[in-house]
């Protein structure tokens, strides 16, 4: 069953007389437990697509059904609730709250969960951090953590609400190769445990970790590649390690 169903998605920006067609009729369907990489050069529309999938942006036309829910009629508040419950974000620049401990960063989405009365926020945040291997770093603030560790905190924050999908926007863009591999194998592991992941990247070797590549150009999908052989998913040639 498709968790993401995009049909005829257009996103046009009007700058005076000029209309920029960031997305110009995108049809994409992503199944539950898939690991998809969205690729494309800069200006191809991949960021806009990610914003639409992440309910940060609303398409000019087309329908987007997320986890069985049609998002087209949603209000601002409705979109906020969808982001809170169904989507976890992982960004290139980590986007953690500074001077705030890892635990509190991970608790953040739970604090905005309006239906979450009576749930043990701290316990769930702790569990999410343990799942990404940061059980020992609960009370460290971002400045005291390495880039890879910060990204793990961000992943824990994305996981903690048990979302339908995790959206990762260039998740390794700020990391060196070794840390990139660590983060990507964590994604792989999470995906294998049943979490749907949509990742935006422009690096081909990072995209190799995904089960499917969707390539965009000029606001349209120009190519889709399925990786039929799961064994083909392997670490970057450069590191030579055992990811």
């Amino acid at each position: 069953m498709a968790v993401i169903e995009l049909k005829g998605i257009k996103r046009h920006y009007a700058f005076g007389e000029v209309t920029v067609k960031a997305l110009d009729g995108v049809d994409v369907s992503i199944e539950r437990t898939e690991f998809v990489a969205i690729m494309g050069a800069s200006g191809s529309g991949k960021s806009t697509l990610m914003n639409v999938i992440g309910c940060l942006d609303v398409p000019s036309s087309g329908t987007y059904i997320l986890d069985g829910l049609d998002t087209s009629g949603a209000t601002d508040d409705g979109l906020a609730d969808i982001r809170n419950k169904k989507i976890g974000f992982v960004f290139q620049g980590f986007n953690l709250l500074q001077k705030t401990t890892a635990l509190e960063n991970v608790e953040l989405p739970l604090l905005y969960d309006r239906a979450g009365g009576g749930r043990n926020v701290e316990k769930e945040a702790r569990a999410a951090l343990e799942r990404v291997g940061l059980g020992e770093r609960l009370h460290h603030i971002p400045n005291q953590l390495s880039g890879g560790q910060q990204q793990r905190v961000a992943i824990a924050r994305a996981l903690v609400t048990r979302p339908a999908i995790i959206i990762a926007d260039e998740p390794t863009g700020n990391l060196d190769t070794e840390m990139s591999n660590e983060i990507m194998s964590l994604f792989k592991e999470l995906n294998e445990s049943g979490i749907t992941i949509v990742m935006v990247t422009h690096e081909a070797d990072i995209a190799l970790w995904a089960g499917r590549k969707i390539v965009l150009r000029d606001g349209r999908v120009i190519r889709e590649e399925h990786k039929t052989d799961a064994a083909a998913v392997r670490p970057l040639p450069a590191d030579g390690g055992t990811a």
Partner: peptide, 9 residues
Amino acid sequence: IRLSVGARR
């Protein structure tokens, strides 16, 4: 960040 994790306006 707060908006992205589901804070309403």
